[in-house]
Design a protein around this nucleic acid. Sequence first.
RNA 1: GGCCACGUAGCCAAGUGGUAAGGCAGAGGUCUGCAAAACCUCCAUCGUGGGUUCGAUUCCCACCGUGGCCUCCA
Length: 406
Amino acid sequence: MRGAPTLLEVYNSLSGRKEEFWPLEDRVVRMYVCGITPYDVGHLGHARVFVFFDTVRRYFEFNAYRVRHVQNITDVDDDMVRVSQRLGLTIAELTERNQQLYLQEMDALNVQRPDLFPKASEHIDGMIALVQALLRSGHAYGVDGYVFFDTATTPRFGALAGHDREGLRHVRNDSMPQEPEELKRDALDFLLWQPSEQAGAAFDSPWGRGRPGWHIECSAMVHAALGDRIDIHGGGSDLRYPHHDSEIVQSECATGAAPYVSLWMHIGTELLEGVKMSKSLGNLVKVSELLVRGHTPDGIRLYLLGTPYREQQDFSPAALSQWEQRAATLARAAAAAGGPPDRLRVQPLRNEFTAAMDDGFDTPRAIAALLRIADGVERQRLAGETAVPALLELAGVLGLRLGREG
RNA sequence: GGCCACGUAGCCAAGUGGUAAGGCAGAGGUCUGCAAAACCUCCAUCGUGGGUUCGAUUCCCACCGUGGCCUCCA
């Protein structure tokens, strides 16, 4: 059973092509977005992901869908342990501190809060249950307090990466992850549970005191919050493999429900002067800094939505400034009187906006339609009484305020 | 090696099967005591080679180049 198809066609990372979007349940969209690991402050790359999925949500809501939006917080993680120890904080304190900073930035950017913000540490039981199910069904095996997923038991592993098992072996791998390779049956197997005694990151389990592996948390939280199968799973493109591929096999093998996710959406990387923005490199542009420098939430949102979401985006001050000018244009038009009554000539531009969004969330094209409405209002070719409300409504779908509160 | 993108003027960048928005920089001009600001004007045949077509920058193929992911990372 599934709901009626929308007019939407969206690129699915799993199939590698555009597909009609069919929600599992009519008029409802179950959407899970991989969120932050709060060991440090975020940057524009994070903001891009969350602004984009906020826009996806707003567009579904604009089309009278109910969106069940869940975004996790990874508070059980090696970096969390390391940073909390260095700062002399508990993991809970570190989480709270960075989560608040994150929320302040997202609030400033007019990102609606997800319905649920589950923390990994609150779903340990669910993870253990999934691991037990995998052990029972023979998809996992335990060794010396470790539990590994047995990738030989499913042909699906590597589907997102675009490889079969043999192909995965040829994937370049310069630096080894911190997994005890010698305990694995196969190098492709991945960790579900590991021994741990670190304060704040150690939990009782059937396999002894320990903590979960790197991928199982999302499966558990999706399961708990949204069910065995969901409509949309999103995140940065750097999570595609191995994180999301691992999630697929874990979840499908544990629950028997497939496909785990109908539509996989991956957001292109944010670059700074041609180099990927990442915490490890330290080449970060932070939202809070941009705001302090006088940039506006609308300008930043327009910038982030001004590149097709699947493409990488290269930040530069000049590019952002250009979007600030456009934000000012839109705000000016929103406050303008416009021309005389015109029999709804704004309608073709409305249609262009929705056609763009229906075409795989083509936000750059949608923005172009908005700018054309603004231009029409300013040149008095569109009637203020119809075009200005249309402008405000459609801009709102992109999360733009246009100088208005709220 | 695989996957995903990109390659448009000095720079950033939009876009379209019928000879290409905009912004920055630059040049000229209006204005001004000078300058600034503002405004006006000027400045590209779209990586290379093929193919499809009456016609391609726009579709297809190949190639070259760039970047990202494939390893904790949004």
